[in-house]
Simulated scan of single mutants.
Amino acid sequence: MSQLRIALLGTGPWAERTHAPAIAAHPDVEFSGVWGRRPEAAAALAAAHDTKAYAGGGDGEGGSGAGGLDGLDALLAASDAVAFALPPDVQAPLAARAAAAGCHLLMDKPVATTVPGARAVADAAERAGVASLVFCTLRFAPETARWVEEQAALGGWFTARAHWLGALYAAGTDSPYADSPWRREKGGLWDVGPHALSALLPVLGDVTAVTAVRTEPDLTHLVLTHTSGVSSSAALSLSSPVKGAGTGFELRGEHGTVELPQDWGDPVDIFGNAISALLTAARTGEPHACDVRFGLRLTEILADAEEQLTGS
């Protein structure tokens, strides 16, 4: 596999600003095409990166002819791997379809917002024997990835505290990501919760119990118990006041107090690192720590928290 032919599914701001430039720039990748639910957006993004456009139905599941799922099947047939920049519950069934077609998976977090949806993708990838990776950003940014590995190896931690407080919906902000219906519906628990969990689990161990409390408009507090016996907490929101927004991750233990580096770097470069990690997993057959099974576990934890918050 001298070059990986990789397709992009999705045409929104994240795809336009991060996924497409990273795929186009990667030296070991051939950009095999763009599929989108809006034909005009797929055409524009594909033209910007000198590749072919495919289009689909407006709901991500329908359509026919040159667009729709016929168009998607044509793109899958011309690809070795697929990168996803779609809402999670649109992403999940299409990822299962891509796996069944023999394509490796580079998915966004969360894999899905339901456990059955995430499990279906994980099972499809396992049946097909394809490599998979979930793009948890700080696990592929060099400084933060190294920090997580170092703290996991060091051990001796007494507790951890994380906060991921975005101002996406604060008064006066103008973010292109604020137009995302799934983010508005699911809030910080599902959008930034995976960031916190992606660092907590490798350092402190899997979660054995979670308690969730929410205050309006969108501030969720999690208290987590880990297999190591350590407890941790996380505060998650997309509706923080602008001056109160920010991220942080702190560990306290036998060796003192350490904090996650704040400089994550350029998202395009970080996504390029994720592409390289998928290439390695595809070539060696060795699963990556952030594979779709890890993504399923994140969904299970977040779904447990959501059930406590909503009673359903």
Score class of each variant (00 low, 15 high):
Met1Tyr: 09
Leu9Met: 15
Pro13Ser: 14
Arg17Trp: 08
Thr18Val: 15
Thr18Gly: 07
Thr18Ser: 13
Ala20Leu: 10
Ala22Val: 06
Ile23Tyr: 12
Ala25Arg: 11
Pro27Tyr: 04
Phe31Leu: 03
Ser32Cys: 00
Gly33Asn: 12
Trp35Gly: 10
Arg37Gly: 04
Arg37Gln: 09
Arg37Met: 10
Arg38Lys: 12
Arg38Thr: 15
Pro39Asn: 08
Glu40Cys: 05
Glu40Asp: 15
Ala43Trp: 01
Ala48Gln: 09
Tyr54Thr: 08
Ala55Val: 02
Asp59Glu: 10
Gly60Asn: 05
Ala66Cys: 01
Gly68Phe: 12
Leu69Asp: 13
Asp70Arg: 08
Asp70Met: 08
Leu72His: 11
Ala74Gln: 13
Leu76Glu: 13
Ala78Arg: 08
Ala83Asp: 02
Leu86Glu: 12
Pro87Ser: 14
Asp89Ile: 01
Val90Gly: 05
Val90Ala: 13
Ala92Asp: 01
Arg97Leu: 02
Ala100Lys: 11
Gly102Met: 06
Gly102Ser: 04
Leu105Tyr: 05
Thr114Asp: 06
Gly117Ser: 02
Gly117Ala: 01
Ala118Thr: 03
Ala118Trp: 00
Asp123Glu: 15
Val130Cys: 01
Val130Phe: 01
Leu133Trp: 08
Thr137Met: 12
Phe140Ile: 06
Ala141Ile: 06
Ala141Met: 05
Pro142His: 08
Pro142Ser: 09
Glu143Gln: 13
Ala145Phe: 09
Ala145Val: 11
Ala145Arg: 15
Arg146Phe: 08
Val148His: 13
Ala152Ile: 01
Ala153His: 06
Gly155Met: 00
Trp157Cys: 00
Phe158Met: 12
His163Val: 12
Ala167Gln: 11
Ala167Leu: 06
Asp174Leu: 11
Tyr177Lys: 07
Tyr177Cys: 07
Ser180His: 13
Ser180Thr: 15
Glu185Gly: 04
Gly188Arg: 00
Asp191Phe: 12
Asp191Tyr: 13
Gly193Asn: 02
Pro194Asn: 04
Leu200Thr: 10
Leu200Asn: 09
Val203Cys: 07
Val203His: 07
Thr211Trp: 10
Ala212Ile: 10
Thr215Ile: 14
Thr215Lys: 07
Glu216Val: 06
Leu219Ala: 05
Thr220Asp: 13
Leu222Cys: 09
Leu224Trp: 13
His226Ile: 01
Thr227Trp: 00
Ser228Arg: 00
Gly229Cys: 07
Ser231Lys: 06
Ser232Lys: 01
Ser232Trp: 00
Ser233Ile: 09
Ala235Asn: 11
Ala235Val: 11
Leu236Asp: 04
Ser237Lys: 01
Val242Phe: 06
Val242Gln: 11
Lys243Arg: 07
Lys243Glu: 15
Gly246Ile: 02
Thr247Phe: 13
Phe249Gly: 04
Leu251Ser: 04
Thr257Lys: 02
Val258Tyr: 05
Gln262His: 10
Gln262Gly: 14
Trp264Phe: 10
Asp266Thr: 07
Pro267Ile: 03
Val268His: 08
Asn273His: 11
Ile275Ser: 03
Ala277Phe: 04
Leu279Gln: 13
Thr280His: 14
Ala281Cys: 05
Gly285Ser: 09
Gly285Gln: 11
Ala289Thr: 06
Asp291Gly: 03
Val292Pro: 02
Gly295Asp: 10
Gly295Met: 05
Leu302Asp: 03
Ala303Tyr: 00
Ala305Arg: 03
Glu307Ile: 06
Gln308Thr: 05
Gly311Ile: 08
Ser312Ile: 08
Ser312Glu: 14
